[in-house]
Structure formats: structure tokens, C-alpha cells
Simulated scan of single mutants.
Amino acid sequence: MNTEDLNFAYKVRHALNEKLDDLPASTTDRLAAARKAAMARKKPHVPVRVTQSELATAGAGGFFSHPFGWLGRMSVAVPLLVLVAGMVGLYQYEQQQRINELAELDAAVLSDELPLSAYLDHGFNTYLEESREQ
């Protein structure tokens, strides 16, 4: 059976499971007869794989209807959560580094001998550039 056939079978099963309670009794009897006929034509050397949990939740289609369905979902969700937590941690670390750099700059400006008004003077920037060139 190829993947297209399997996908079609899963879609049919899902559609039937959704409307199972709404089906008339005659339709469910015909479906049961068709299943019996299909099982009668089954090759004897091919085992039927139905787990106990699938029998218990037949037609429910809930979160635990497949034995490892929740584990498969968690195998996607956990790495995503780790990635998001790592990104948040990296962002927080970068923000802390930026705060530390600004604090060092503020401390250097405040501890300098020049008054704060000198840094606001446009002529002072020109003086600094000229003194660097010499």
C-alpha cells in the first residue's frame, strides 16, 4: 500500500469517526458487514495489528487514541520550547551587556573633569576631531 492509499484511508476513517454517532443503524450494520467480509478475505499470514488502547478508544479520536501520539507531539514541542527559551535568554544577556556598557560610559562621563555642558557644545566636538587629527 503506498502513501496516497494510506492517506486516503486515514481521511476516510477520520470522516467516519467524526460522524459515527450521526449514522443510521442500517449504515453501521452495512459497515460492520463490509468489515467482516474484508476480514474474511484477509490473507492468513498477515497479522492484524490492533492494540488494546485502539480498541478502548475506537472512534474517540482523542489525544490518547494513538499510543505514542502524545510522545510525537512532545518531540516537536519540547525542542521548540528550548529554542524559544534560548532565544529569550540570549536576548536578556545582550540587553544586560548593553546596560553594562552604558553604565560604564555614564560613569566615565560623570567622573571626567569636564563639565557636562562641554559635551553638549558643538564646538567641543570640532575641537576633539581636530585634536585627533594632529
Results as ranks from 00 to 15, higher is better:
V50P: 06
D29E: 15
Y10R: 12
E101C: 02
L20R: 06
D106W: 07
P67H: 12
V88M: 09
Y91R: 09
L120T: 15
S26H: 10
A108K: 09
K42P: 00
E129C: 09
P67K: 15
P24A: 11
E130G: 14
M74W: 09
L20F: 04
V82W: 07
D22M: 07
S65L: 08
E104Y: 04
E94I: 07
G123W: 11
F124V: 03
A60T: 12
M1G: 03
R132C: 13
A108P: 01
Q97P: 04
A107V: 06
Q134C: 09
S65F: 11
E113H: 05
V46G: 00
V76I: 09
N2E: 07
L23T: 00
L114W: 00
H45A: 11
L105Y: 09
T3A: 14
A77R: 04
L102K: 05
L83K: 01
D29V: 02
R132V: 13
L31R: 06
L71K: 06
G61F: 02
L105C: 01
A118T: 11
A9R: 14
H45R: 12
L128D: 06
V76P: 00
Q95H: 13
G86T: 03
S117I: 14
S117A: 13
V48L: 10
F124W: 14
E54Y: 02
V82R: 03
K11N: 13
V78D: 09
E101D: 14
Q96P: 02
V46F: 01
A38T: 14
S117H: 02
G123T: 15
L83Q: 02
A118K: 03
T57M: 04
R41A: 11
E129W: 08
P44K: 07
D112L: 02
A25H: 10
E101R: 05
L90P: 00
Q52I: 07
T57K: 06
L120P: 00
V82S: 10
G62W: 11
V78N: 06
S53G: 04
N17I: 08
M74F: 08
S111Q: 10
K19I: 00
Y119F: 15
E18G: 03
K42W: 12
M1A: 02
A37L: 12
D29I: 05
K19L: 06
S53M: 12
P24L: 09
L71I: 08
Q134P: 07
L114P: 00
V78C: 06
F124L: 06
T27H: 04
G59E: 01
N125P: 01
E4D: 15
G62A: 13
L114K: 04
T27K: 13
Q134S: 15
A34K: 10
R13G: 05
L6P: 02
V12C: 08
L55S: 06
T51R: 12
E129R: 14
P67I: 08
S111G: 04
P24Q: 11
M1K: 08
T28H: 05
T51L: 01
V12T: 13
A103P: 00
K43E: 06
E4F: 07
P67D: 10
A9L: 11
Q97M: 10
K42A: 11
G72Y: 02
A108D: 05
P44C: 00
V82D: 08
R73G: 02
E130T: 11
E4S: 12
A9W: 00
K43Q: 05
V46K: 09
S131K: 13
E113Y: 05
V48M: 05
